[in-house]
Nucleic acid binder design. Structure first.
Lengths: 91, 91
DNA sequence: TGACAATATCAATGGACATTGATATAGTAT
DNA sequence: ATACTATATCAATGTCCATTGATATTGTCA
């Protein structure tokens, strides 16, 4: 039951199309915010907002490099959520 | 890109806690609507509504038995969505 | 037929949240 | 200090949708 709540939270966060696109991008390489919003053709503040949501669940990590903030997938966290998913939603 | 839209649709549908609980129940056994809403302590019309959403994506199947309508997981469909998920969200 | 049980649908409501525009913060360079 | 760039935050808006209460539909049994 606790797991269902946590899983629901995860699924809601990644169900957003733009967040999925961000995750997809970061799967291939780490990127700074400006590279992401240019690639996806989205306003900067919107991408920032979505990255914040992804970070809330530790789905992405960030690292500073000058004024740039470079985001990358948190693979461990993502793996745990996917494991929870497979554990609860069995086929 | 088409896949991301479809995946987002799927994730949004199953991100709802009550729908997750329904799926979870149906994983173990097929059930009629009244068994579901009694088990989950939810109003009948709400469960009906959620089952409708799940059916929209073919995540559940239904079968009539008198006045009862018995729902079960559509394993094939669920497997396909999970496959799409793993294909797009790599860890 | 009428009464009842199981399920679905309709209409209204309230809350969550993506999006936008404007502004703030922080780091870099001149 | 000033200007500029990268990123984050704030406030407002509109839309989507879960939930609820009431009603409709469909099947069964007397």
């Amino acid at each position: 039951m606790k797991g269902i709540l946590k899983l629901g939270e995860f699924l809601k966060i990644i169900s957003d199309t733009n967040r999925l696109r961000i995750l997809c991008l970061l799967t291939k390489q780490e990127l700074c915010v400006c590279e992401i919003f240019e690639a996806l053709e989205l306003p900067q503040n919107l991408v920032s907002h979505h990255l914040g949501k992804l970070k809330d669940l530790s789905l992405v990590k960030e690292r500073k490099e000058g004024t740039f903030i470079i985001y990358s997938i948190n693979k461990n966290s993502l793996r745990q959520y996917k494991s929870l998913f497979n554990q609860i939603v069995k086929d």
